[in-house]
Design a binder for these strands. Structure first.
Lengths: 136, 136
DNA sequence: TTAAGTGTAATAATTTTTGTTACATTAATG
DNA sequence: CATTAATGTAACAAAAATTATTACACTTAA
């Protein structure tokens, strides 16, 4: 992954966990990460769809965690934002006339999925609460 | 990773393993993957630096494996081409005045490195020979 | 000496990612 | 009930990363 989506999502969730029930605005969060508030709202939309946060519109609106930080594991965050395989992309049109090229993408699929799953398994062993507790 | 470097490198190495000592040209390899020969030569340069292949210049030149495919583990291929963390990039300038923003990047570093290592560990359990044997 | 390769720099094109603007909508509050 | 401060989201712009292409110096076999 050469994007900042996991780092951004985890930063957001860490702030929300640290806020202990306070509703934080996208502007405030953006100020901590130092990115554009619209990006924060977009990512919060994704986290909302994943059931990790709640949002409230209008004045005094904002965001808060949907569940306790002990109940949010890192794999849930990762799966919410994941948009590619750990080992990257496959080449588009390997040569169908080549015995290797013909079948390589299905073999890569198996390998890529296995590695993706191992990352998810690894991430499932750590909670947001664990991460937040490292800040003191 | 949103690039095709691992897929390309593994495709190259699979062809070389399958060729059993024949020297293959970058043009021929490019034809199987269906990408530009210059990209193949660049990637082969990287694999050469990593000690995985041998190259020969001039007429009748080309590439071959430097060691047997049973002795090439997937982690060696991955480490040769890896240029980012599995969990992506960190945000550049988190706010130093925020208690979370101040320290988040060093905490992310630890998490990111741990996940990277787990992927390498996972990949170390599979050889190029294992992969090639899936094609029949 | 020619033909067929590698090695690599420079640059262009494409795709992905991030940032920005604009504005409709929502809700609290004086 | 008007004002203020939020979210939600589309459309677009800018920047960064990735891939493709061109060009050519160099190498080696025959």
């Amino acid at each position: 992954m050469s994007n900042t989506r996991f780092a951004t999502a985890l930063h957001i969730l860490t702030l929300l966990a640290d806020a202990k029930g306070e509703w934080l605005s996208s502007d405030w969060i953006a100020g901590s990460i130092n990115i554009h508030p619209v990006i924060v709202r977009k990512e919060l939309g994704v986290l909302n769809d994943a059931g990790l946060v709640l949002s409230r519109k209008g004045k005094e609106g904002g965001f808060t965690l949907a569940v306790g930080s002990e109940d949010i594991t890192m794999d849930a965050i990762y799966l919410a934002i994941k948009n590619s395989n750990v080992l990257g992309k496959k080449n588009n049109q390997p040569n169908p006339k080549c015995p290797i090229g013909k079948d390589i993408n299905e073999k890569l699929d198996v390998l890529f999925t296995g590695i993706d799953n191992s990352v998810v398994r690894e991430l499932s062993g750590k909670t947001l609460a664990d991460f937040v507790s490292e800040f003191h």
